[in-house]
Each structure stands twice: as structure tokens, then as C-alpha cells.
Design a protein around this nucleic acid. Structure first.
Lengths: 193, 193, 193, 193
DNA sequence: TATGAATGAGTCTTCATTCAT
DNA sequence: AATGAATGAAGACTCATTCAT
């Protein structure tokens, strides 16, 4: 492969840029910052990417692909709804506290600047996430493990409180108990007993 | 008062800047932008404020002062807990949808840049808000209008889902029903019947 | 006048830029060159003009205004056609040799880059010049001083040979006699005897 | 020959570059442009040429060699002076209108930048061209086909009006009749009857 | 020969900030 | 208080040019 070298550099750039975006948000990261972080010359960086937007776009594409809460697999593996719920909420809890690696702020900035092509990826992600949760909740309700909750409402509550905390955790010291309290409350709403 | 004129100018600057911050976030607003929006010369602006941070700080101070959910007054006026809750949730709902005038993004950026002196105002606001809600919830519980909920948990759920929606509404088209669903769900958690 | 200072600077910029354009053509002059020539900082220059095109445009506008061969005035002053012809050809001759101050090359470059809005000024100038010459030639022919030449043809020959020499004088050492020979030949075509 | 392939590439480069020079002038063509036009990598181009000047020089050398109005051959073939004149003026006329393929602007820029080594080729071309025309005109005059014109003057008029039109045709829409009028006028000057 | 990654210099452009008026 | 000209630094971007492969 002739482009082995190039691909490595691209990875390096993305990795370096990602740290910067997580740390400073989108707008406050410059091409110069990225050059320096990736230990690359100005022109060298421009060989691969023409702007911070371009780099960021690639990062979040990779990111969103690997994301995606898909519960169906687990359901097929005969896990109980409650177990799956516990697992995902645990994951959420950890993410809420992991302000370091969170791209939340950068994502908000990125999508808020120049709203033209925007929003679609986010909408898509929102929808995908909703579908996954719907599957899980219906499964739990059918099983008799979960209450007869309104799926949409519960989903919104989960997703937006999660996002809200992620956001805040970037800008103020968040009491470590907050994520725990939130997921406990959510469980209380959903799970019988 | 000799500084009548000066005060007017300051108000004008803050008003103009506020629109800009609401529209573009914090970092993407420059002193130059504000000059133009306020129809003021470069030097003129600098007579009053030395940086965008300074202007922004004053805006949010005013803002936080006028904010503050204080329910105690209403409680004294013998309103039922349920009525007060409905009122405040209605207010929240409207704010969630009012992406135009929301400073969310700007606030996040402001507080995320240069974390030194930061966070304190937000913490203070969080605490103040918590105290207010605590008062309300205890009042409702004592009255027998509300369930015996865990106050902290419910408060977190409310406040962060509210913040999450405000954030998202700035960057993607938010289904109008979402705020309604969220407050309905919250009521369900809190209110008996 | 508050803009006295600014106007002076603008004049200075145009003067400096004009020398540069005359010396190096259009494209090879950078904003940096102009800054230095005008002894102005980068930002200072940008206060007044946003690009070399903008500066150049203003220069040629001024230039074209002051230009314009208008013979009608002279005709009214009862000068003979031959005298007027001699005068203008003498002027042309001197301009042909004055390669230093000639903007020819710069003009060509300017108009050849990005042909959108282009050509119109040149067309206008060509037409205006033609009208002037038409007046003169008809006057001379009516007087009996000039041959019955085809006005358009003679005009084209004059104007394009003039332009051709101006161009060449910028890029190769032009024999000083060439302009003289050309205007002599033109006279021979036009003037009786 | 091992350099067959290399020679092909050089031709390709020159061909691609020539279109670019004709279209955009000399200075505005970059090595990068040429790479892209020739569908060659950066390094590949540098294997053959070190700069745009080098490429351009080779182009115009080829060009000037194939050029050269040489009338002597035709004179030996017993063509009448008038016929030869008609032929060459017809050729000139077509070239004047063929703004697409004209290198005029590029030539001017090339020779105007960095005047050190410059001008010589142009001078040589001017002289060669003059010699050819001198031969033709003397031939016609001796034949009695042409007037007793001043050879130098007529030559200058021809060559510079020709160049003037070529130049202008690159930068403004030229009336198609102009070249015709010019050559007609020239014929009128030269040819008897 | 040819590729394309990388460098580094040069220019463009935008702003925060200062200052004489 | 207010104007707007001017400065200088920072960052964006483009290329000529080199070099390992």
C-alpha cells in the first residue's frame, strides 16, 4: 500500500485534534494548534485536511459509527430487560462523568456554527437512539419487567438529562453523585419494584 | 447625573451584544461585531468595556439576578404546590423552545474557556435553584399533594433535562412536543394522581 | 473635516501602489508590497482597502476620468485639424516612450484576470476615444485638410499601434525612433500633402 | 531510445502548460496548476522542469522557431508580392482574433518580470520579422506592385497594431471587423491601386 | 522516472487594542 | 465620551521545493 504513510498521518492528526476538541471545544482549536499537537508542519497538515471543520467532521463520523446503542443483539442473547437497562445506564453514568474525553461542547459549537447542512447527523443519531430504546422498553414491558411507561417521554427524559449533565460536567465541577441519582431515578420510573 | 448618557450606551451595548451571543455563542462574537451591532466606533466601545468577557459577564450577572426561581413568595400566598409546579414547568417548557434568545451555548463556551475563575456562578445558580425546588417539593409532600420522591434526584432530572433540551434546540430542529412530554413525565413522577 | 487624515492616507496608498503597478504589473504587487511602499502597517492598509483589485480599480477610475481625448474644445477654439492632430500625436509619441509610468501591463493583467465585470471600462474608453477621433477626422475632412480616409480603419490603426508600442516598451528596449516613425506614417495616411 | 517516455511527458507538460499560459497569463500559472493539468504528481513534474519560467522558455523557443515569417521561399517560387502580402495579412488577421490560443499576455508578463536576461529574444524576433518584411516590401516595390513606402515605418505600423489587437482581444470583446479594417488599411498603404 | 508526503516561507486577512483628536 | 486611523500579532492558506520510496 502506497498510502500507508498517509493514512498513519491522518490517524495521528485525528487523534491529536480529538484531544484538542475535547479539551477546548470546536472553535477555539486552530489549524496551528493541530499542527503543533501532531508535530506536523503547516503545509503538511493541509496535505490532508483543509480546515478544522473537515477534521472534525471525520472524527464525528467515525465516532457516530462506532456509537449506537443497539440492544437487539443482547435481547437475542436472552438477557433480561432489566440487565440490559442496568448495563446501558451504567455506561451512561460513566460517560456523564468523563468530561475529559467528551466532545459535547465541541459538537454543540460545530453544529451551531453555520446551520446549513447541520442537524441532520444529530437528528439521525437521535432517531437511531430512540429506536434502540424503544426496542428495549417494549421488550421489558412485554416481559412484565417494566411499567407501562410512555416510551417517547421516558426516552426524552433519559437522553436530554444525560446530555445536560455531559454539558455541565465540562463547565462546572459536577457532584459525583449526580449521575448516580439520575440513573436511579430513571430506573425507578421504568422498572417494576 | 452626568453618567446618564453613559449608562444608556452601556445598555445599548449589552442589548446588542446579547443578541449576538444568543445567535452565535460566546467565542464567535468579536468586539468588532459588537461595535457594528451597537452602531458604535471601536474606540467608543472600549470606553465602556475592555473585552467580550467583560460584557458577557455583566450580561449574565443581570440575567442571573432577575432569574432565580423563588417559590417561597408564592407559597406564602397560599397557592397549592401543584399550581406552583404547573406554573414553573410551563415557564420551563416555553424556555426550552425559545432557542432564539437562549444564551445556553454562549454560557457553555464562556465557562469552558479558561476555567480559572469559572464555575462558581454556575454552582451558585445550581444551588439556589435547588433550594427553591427543595422548598417547593417539601411543601407539596407535606401537603400530601406530591409523592414522597427523593428531592435531589428529581431536581437533577428536571434541571439537566431542561438544560439538555435548551442546548439541543440551538443546534437541531427540536420536535415541539418534546418539552411537553418532558414536563408531563416530570409531573407524573411528582404529583399524586 | 474629520476624514482629512484618512483621505491623505488613501492618496498616499494610491500613489505608492501606482508606482508599484507601473513597475511590476498587477498580479506581482502584493498588499505587503503596498504596505511597505506606503510605510503603513498591514492592518492600516486594510482600514482603507481590502485588496489590490480595489486599489487598482480606484487608480484607473481616477485615471480614466482625467484621460479622454476631447478635441471638440480645440475645434471650437478654431485650431486647424492639422494642428490638433499634430498635438495629439505628439502626446501619443511621448506616452509610447514613457514606459516607466505606463500602467499598460498592469491594466492587461487586471482585466484578464476574472473577466466577469471586466472589459466594460475598456470598451467605454475605446468608444469614447473613437468618438473624439471621429470628430477630429470629420472636421479635417470637411475642412479639406485631410484625405477622405475610412475613419474607423484609421482609428483602429492609430489606437492599436499605439497600444502595441506601449506594451512592448515595457518589455524590450524600444528604438526611440519607432514612435516617431509611426506617427509620421499616420500623418501620411491622414493629412493631405 | 530510453528517453522516449521522458520526451512524451515533456511534450505533455508543455502542451498542458501552454493552455494554461494562454488562458491565464504567465504569473498566475503555478507549478501546481501544471501538475494538475498534466495529470502528473508534484515530484514527477520536477523531474523535468524546475520552474514555470523554464517551461515557458521552452515553449516560446519552440514557438519562435516554427514562427518566423520567411517570405524568401515564396518569392523564389515566383509568387507575386501582392499574393504573398495577402497571405500573410490573412494569417495575421486570424491570429488577431484567436485570443484563446494567444500567449501575448503571458509573453508580456514573462518578459516584464525580472528584466535581466530579457528582451533579447523579443528583439531577435523583431529583427527577424523586420528582415522578412523588408525582403517582401523591397520585392514588391521593385516589381512595381507596391508604393514607394518607407519600409521601417510601415513595418512598425503593421507589427505594433497587430500586437496591440492581440493584446486587447485577450481582455475585451473585440469587434470582429477590427482585424479586417486594419489589414485593409495596411494594404491601402502598401499596394498600388 | 514517478509518487505524494512533508517542509517552510510568504501572503492574506482579521482583530484586539491603542491613541491623537 | 466618542471617533476612526493605526498597530501588531495571530491564524489561514497556498505554493515552490525537497525527499524517501
Amino acid at each position: 500500500m502506497t498510502n500507508k504513510r498517509g493514512e498513519e498521518t491522518r490517524q495521528l492528526i485525528k487523534k491529536s485534534a480529538c484531544s484538542l476538541f475535547a479539551g477546548k471545544g470546536f472553535k477555539q482549536v486552530t489549524m496551528k494548534d493541530i499542527c503543533e499537537a501532531a508535530n506536523l508542519s503547516r503545509g503538511g497538515l493541509y496535505c490532508h485536511y483543509g480546515s478544522t471543520r473537515e477534521i472534525f467532521r471525520e472524527i464525528i463520523n467515525n465516532f457516530m459509527i462506532q456509537q449506537g446503542d443497539s440492544f437487539s443483539e443482547k435481547i437475542e442473547h436472552q438477557l433480561s430487560a432489566k440487565e440490559i437497562l442496568n448495563e446501558v445506564l451504567e455506561k451512561y453514568k460513566n460517560e456523564m462523568l468523563d468530561s475529559q474525553s467528551s466532545l459535547s461542547l465541541a459538537l454543540y459549537e460545530y453544529f451551531s456554527i453555520d446551520n446549513t447542512e447541520t442537524g441532520n447527523e444529530l437528528c439521525a443519531q437521535y432517531t437511531a437512539s430512540f429506536n434502540a430504546w424503544q426496542t428495549l422498553l417494549e421488550y421489558g414491558i412485554k416481559n412484565g419487567e417494566f411499567h407501562h411507561v410512555d416510551i417517547k417521554s421516558v426516552f426524552d427524559l433519559i437522553i436530554f438529562s444525560y446530555q445536560g449533565v455531559r454539558m455541565y460536567s465540562k463547565i462546572m465541577p459536577i457532584d459525583e453523585d449526580i449521575p448516580q441519582r439520575i440513573i436511579d431515578q430513571i430506573k425507578k420510573i421504568i422498572v417494576k419494584e
